[in-house]
Design a protein around this nucleic acid. Structure first.
Length: 278
DNA sequence: TGCCCCCTGCAG
DNA sequence: CTGCAGGGGGCA
């Protein structure tokens, strides 16, 4: 997925494009991808678009649509008439789908809007989902339980990060940063980038960090997420031009020219500059 | 804390 | 063919 910056980019894009529009019909191509009753959303007007961690929410009068894009989910909105006429707004995974016709074989759900625009939920691997929830019960959805602080909000201070991290002293720093009970919304790309920004070896155990390192890690998380949002999310084709370490195995470090190394950590591909992050 | 799994497709 | 992919739930 689409991590926090990608979902945030979608949220911002949707706020101005679909707010106020009415959903006339929902077409479900893959039942696995859609949870709940589409009838309770059809005919309803979009009131608000929001994000929590990596989940996107679209509020209606009494119901909310929740989206989790997981690994390969993608949202494509195509304007037809009215605002954003003929425009195409894409957020999510950068597959060849982005330039493909809509719908295509990965289109799992289609939302039709009252102005003739369409929203396509594409998901190659079918890990993602759309869920209809009662607006009043959204907060008690299980995936919102135990979520750590939103990294771009004021509640996320370095002291809070330190406190949460220290519950997992023997965990490698990068693995801990991806733990949503510690800080929410940081996935594999930005965890790698955050460690690089903080000049911390991703393998270093949380219990070994100094206060100075907790602070730089805190800054690193925020910096890398902000950069991602500024960039419009990692959805953009030239993402590798932006990343310092992610996906750059054997490439020269952008800061010191040393060769970027790829290792496995917590089962995930992990990239580091052995020189900058030692 | 560390696997395995969900699923599909692509690179090597 | 094998391994890997930006997520994360469930299981020991």
């Amino acid at each position: 997925m689409p991590e926090l910056p990608e979902v945030e980019t979608i949220k911002i894009g949707f706020q101005k494009r679909i707010a106020g529009l009415k959903i006339t019909k929902i077409q479900i191509n893959s039942t696995k991808s859609f949870i709940g009753n589409p009838n309770s959303v059809e005919g309803q007007k979009v009131l608000k678009v929001w994000r929590r961690a990596k989940i996107l929410g679209i509020d209606f009068d009494k119901t909310t649509l929740l989206f989790h894009l997981k690994m390969s989910g993608q949202l494509v909105w195509k304007g037809k008439s009215g605002k954003g006429k003929g425009e195409r707004f894409i957020g999510g995974h950068p597959t060849p789908d982005m330039v493909a016709e809509m719908p295509n074989k990965h289109t799992r759900v289609i939302f039709y809007f009252s102005d003739g625009s369409h929203l396509y939920f594409n998901d190659q691997r079918k890990f993602g989902w759309v869920k209809v929830s009662e607006k009043l019960k959204v907060q008690s959805e299980k995936f919102f339980e135990n979520l750590g602080p939103e990294p771009l909000e004021k509640t996320f201070t370095w002291e809070v990060l330190k406190q949460n991290l220290l519950k997992h002293k023997s965990t490698p720093v990068k693995v801990a940063i991806m733990d949503h009970t510690i800080v929410s919304g940081v996935g594999n790309i930005y965890a790698n980038e955050a460690c690089f920004d903080a000049k911390i070896d991703p393998r270093k155990k949380v219990g070994q960090l100094s206060d100075e390192e907790f602070e730089s890690l805190h800054r690193g998380v925020i910096n890398s997420l902000r950069e991602g949002i500024k960039f419009g999310g990692a959805t953009r084709a030239h993402f590798l031009d932006y990343a310092y370490v992610y996906g750059r195995n054997k490439h020269p470090c952008k800061k010191c020219k040393f060769e970027i190394k790829k290792i496995q950590l917590g089962g995930r591909g992990t990239y580091l500059c052995p020189k900058c992050q030692s």
